[in-house]
């Protein structure tokens, strides 16, 4: 580059042309740029030189674009636009008043921690309440489901055509105690209703028995005590399924019940065959 031109005066036009052509060294170009930034005249001259280069560029023979070049470019910008849309938007940065930050900076962390602790405690209580509520609701649902199943079994035992229906009466004089058993062998469902039953000492209880048709040992079918009017009932005692009954009987047993019936049998009734 022309010596002595940095840059008390101006950069020679030749050097500006070379700069526009990128024909100067990096150091020389830097010097030109530094000068042009401050010198309006040289800036204008450099612009003119660049304009000359634009004219030279126009002298290039015009060539058709390669096949598919346009499509390739459009695909490229379309993909770029898609990526731009896919990127999460960055929240706008809001300038913070530094003075305010200085005043609150000491307390801000503590306040934040305290707030978090309060929120956490509140959430814990809320969770505990929700858990308790859930447990209660679950228990109610379970109870309702059990009651519903029991009611269904009662209805089925009372209405099933295959249920064995037996009327048990006192052998001796009236008012004779009696009992009615409805039994569904396939499910083991049994409903017994007793009437005119004598009251018992505290250490005694009535016990209902199922006498299996297959001759096996009597099966205890529930303990019961009559109410003030002599009525009592046994509903769905725990019985095995699929045991047809030959008969039913009621005995008086010790208060805790017995595994085998104790004579005498107070009430007894033979069961007809199923479906009879």
């Amino acid at each position: 580059m022309t010596q002595g031109s940095h840059f008390g005066s101006h950069i020679p036009g030749e050097d500006l042309t070379l700069h526009a052509l990128q024909a100067l060294t990096a150091e020389e170009s830097a010097a030109v740029q530094a000068h042009v930034a401050e010198c309006e005249l040289c800036r204008a001259e450099l612009a003119a030189a660049t304009g000359d280069l634009a004219l030279v560029a126009l002298s290039a023979e015009q060539q058709p674009l390669p096949t598919g070049a346009r499509d390739r470019f459009l695909v490229r910008i379309a993909e770029d636009a898609k990526q731009e849309e896919a990127q999460p938007r960055i929240a706008k940065v809001i300038p913070i008043n530094r003075a305010s930050v200085g005043r609150v900076s000491v307390w801000a962390p503590r306040v934040a921690v305290a707030a978090l602790l309060i929120i956490a405690a509140g959430l814990s209580v809320e969770i505990m309440h929700l858990d308790m509520r859930l447990r209660r609701e679950t228990a109610v649902l379970r109870s309702l489901a059990e009651k519903n199943a029991k009611a269904q079994a009662v209805v089925e035992a009372l209405t099933a055509p295959s249920a064995q229906r037996v009327l048990l009466t006192s052998i001796k004089t009236p008012p004779s105690p009696s009992g009615r058993a409805v039994y569904l062998p396939s499910t083991g469902a049994l409903v017994f209703q007793g009437n005119n039953l004598a009251s018992l000492p505290a250490d005694k209880t009535y016990e209902l028995w199922v006498i299996p048709a297959n001759g096996s040992a009597p099966i205890p079918a529930g303990l019961f005590r009559p109410d003030a009017t002599g009525n009592a009932s046994v509903v769905l005692p725990d019985l095995p399924k699929g045991v047809p009954a030959k008969a039913f009987g009621v005995t008086v047993e010790k208060a805790s019940g017995s595994d085998t019936p104790t004579a005498p049998i107070l009430l007894a009734g033979a069961a007809p065959a199923a479906g009879e």
């Binding site: 560029a57 290039a60 023979e61 060539q63 674009l65 070049a69 346009r70 470019f73």
Partner: peptide, 12 residues
């Protein structure tokens, strides 16, 4: 813009 100047840029 590409249609307008693509040929010029490519030719140069």
């Amino acid at each position: 813009v590409f249609d307008r100047y693509g040929g010029l840029v490519y030719s140069v």
